[in-house]
Amino acid sequence: MADTVPPKGLDDRGYIEREGSLTRVPDAFRPVVAAARERLQDVFGARLHSAYLYGSVPRGTARVGRSDLDLLVALRAEPTDADRQAARVLGAALDKEFPQIDGAGTLLYGRARLLSDLERYDLGWFVACLCTPLLGADLAAFLPRYRPDSLLARETNGDLALFLPRWRERIAGAEDREEARRPLVRFMSRHLVRTGFTLVMPRWQGWTSDLREMAEVFGAYYPERARQMRTAAEYGYEPVGDPEVLHSYVDDLGPWLAEEYTRVHGTKAPRPD
C-alpha cells in the first residue's frame, strides 16, 4: 500500500520544489505582508541581507484569525540580543495591529550560517525549499537542489532526542495553566508530525507540508502508530489544553520516534547551540 502513494512536491528530476509564492498570499493577509516588508527594512536597515516568508501564508492556506505570520531574516552578521529583541517587538506590533493573524514570529540568522556546510541540509534546505523571498537577494542561488533522501531526513529532524528533556521542563512549567499548555500542544504536535513524516520521506519519495497528509503518509509505513500521528496532526491545527496529551508525547510517542529515527537515519550533526 505504502509503495503506491504517488510522489508529490517534486519536479520532473526528483528535486523538492520550492513551496510558496507571494502570488499565493491570500488577499486578507497582503496588508500584513506589506507592513512586515516595510518594517523589517526600518528595523534592520543595511544589516539586513534578505528576508523570507514561510508557513501557511505564502502557501495560500492561512486562515483568518487563526494563522500566524512566519518570517525568516538573514543578517549580514550574526544576530545580537538587541536584534532578537527588536524582532520580538516587531512581531508583537504586527500581531496587535492585524487581527488577520494569530501571532507573528521571526527567525534570525547570519548569512554565513545559513550558507555554511553544517547547515546545508537543515537551515539551507529550509531557506531554499520552504521559504518565499520577500526582501533582498535570495540565498537559494547559493544552495544546492535537494532530494527527499536519508541525508536530508537526518539533518532536518535527527535531533528529536535532544528536545525531549527540554519539552519535559516546559510541560512542568505549564502544568497548572491551560492557556500555557495549549500552545505547547500545538508546537509539539507539529514537531512530532513533521518528524514522523521525514522518517518515512525517503521511502515515500515526495514532499508535503500539510500536517494531515504527513500523518497519512507516516501511517502507511507505521500502521501501529497511525492513529497517534493522525491525532497529533489534528492538534497541530486545533490544539487542546489537556496535560495528558503532552505527557503522552514525552513519555511514549516522542521517545519511540526518536529511537526509530536514529535507527533508520542516524543522528543529526551536532550544532554549537
Rank of each mutant, 00 (worst) to 15 (best):
A2D: 06
G9H: 04
L10G: 14
R13F: 03
R13L: 05
G14P: 06
G14M: 02
E19Q: 13
G20D: 03
G20N: 08
G20L: 01
S21V: 07
S21R: 12
R24S: 06
V32F: 00
R37K: 14
L40H: 11
L40M: 07
F44E: 08
G55D: 05
V57F: 00
P58R: 10
T61W: 05
T61D: 10
G65A: 08
R66G: 04
D68H: 11
L69H: 10
E78V: 07
E78K: 12
T80S: 15
D81S: 14
R84F: 01
L90C: 07
A93I: 00
L94G: 13
D95V: 00
K96G: 13
P99G: 03
A104N: 08
T106I: 12
L108R: 13
A112Q: 15
L114C: 13
S116G: 04
S116V: 01
E119Y: 10
G124P: 09
W125D: 07
F126A: 09
A128P: 09
C129K: 15
C131H: 09
L134Q: 09
L135E: 14
G136S: 08
D138H: 11
L143G: 10
Y146S: 13
Y146I: 10
Y146R: 13
P148H: 13
L151V: 15
R154L: 00
G158A: 04
D159E: 06
A161R: 15
P165Q: 05
A172W: 00
G173M: 03
A174Y: 05
L184E: 11
F187A: 15
M188W: 12
H191G: 07
L192K: 11
T195E: 04
L211F: 06
L211W: 05
L211N: 07
R212Y: 00
E213H: 10
A215C: 07
A215V: 09
V217C: 07
F218L: 05
R225P: 02
A233W: 05
A233M: 08
G236K: 09
G236N: 11
G236A: 10
Y237S: 12
Y237T: 12
P239A: 06
G241A: 13
E244W: 01
V245K: 09
H247T: 11
S248W: 10
D251L: 02
L253C: 02
G254M: 04
P255C: 10
L257Q: 13
A258F: 03
R263A: 13
A269Y: 01
R271W: 01
